[in-house]
Nucleic acid binder design. Structure first.
Length: 191
DNA sequence: CGCTTTTGACCAGCGC
DNA sequence: GCGCTGGTCAAAAGCG
């Protein structure tokens, strides 16, 4: 995942994510969840990694990247175990950020905003702008701590991140096979 | 002009 | 059937 100082509101910079990576201290990933479709019980929501300390200590200094890699790893595992289709995955992030929406490398089109009863903060709905890609994401502030943002991805991208394409980073994302993207973009190898 | 956001309306699912 | 709630649609407006 790539983090920039801009959100969808600022499309002048939406494709410059490699140039404006935010200070890691500004953004803190605290939780990310791998959600399964059949929410029969709470235990189906699995916290794959929970503490912020796990990520702030990442060697590359970007907590999101490690989370991103772990998630893609987990999704591949889950895919094999449960034979899920590419559009059945749901991944939720809980991030500490002042930014409502963080640039993850993909282009999103906002299609709805709704106040939900379970939260005092409105929930925003986005679809991937890429033609034929049905990935959606929901973004809302944590009702218990508005300094946290909960981002839920639904589905798997069937295309590369525009960042990879635009910056010719295709060869740097071997974990994303053709026509089988990831719910969030894998970050390039900075080393 | 093309793309995005905004926002009220609409729809489906669920509980009563 | 009715009301509530969450999710989506689509027209209008804004922006570069």
């Amino acid at each position: 995942m790539f983090v920039t100082m801009n959100g969808p509101e600022d499309h002048n910079h939406s494709h410059t994510c490699f140039e404006e990576i935010v200070d890691p201290s500004y953004f803190e990933l605290s939780d990310y969840l791998l959600l399964e479709d059949d929410f029969e019980e709470d235990s189906s929501v699995k916290t794959m990694a929970s503490s912020a300390e796990n990520f702030t200590g990442s060697s590359n200094g970007f907590p999101c990247r490690e989370a991103s890699e772990r998630i893609n790893s987990n999704i591949r595992c889950n895919s094999g175990r449960k034979s899920k289709t590419a559009t059945e995955f749901r991944v939720a992030f809980r991030t500490k950020s002042e930014l409502e929406v963080m640039d993850d490398g993909f282009r999103w089109r906002k299609y709805g905003k709704k106040s939900v009863k379970s939260s005092p903060n409105p929930r925003n709905y986005y679809k991937c702008s890429s033609e034929g890609c049905l990935v959606k994401k929901r973004v809302e502030r944590d009702r218990e701590d508005s300094s946290y943002v909960i981002t839920t991805y639904e589905g798997v991208h069937n295309h590369e991140s525009p960042c990879f394409v635009n910056r010719n980073y295709k060869q740097m994302s071997p974990a994303v096979p053709p026509n089988r993207g990831s719910p969030i973009p894998l970050s390039p190898n900075f080393s």
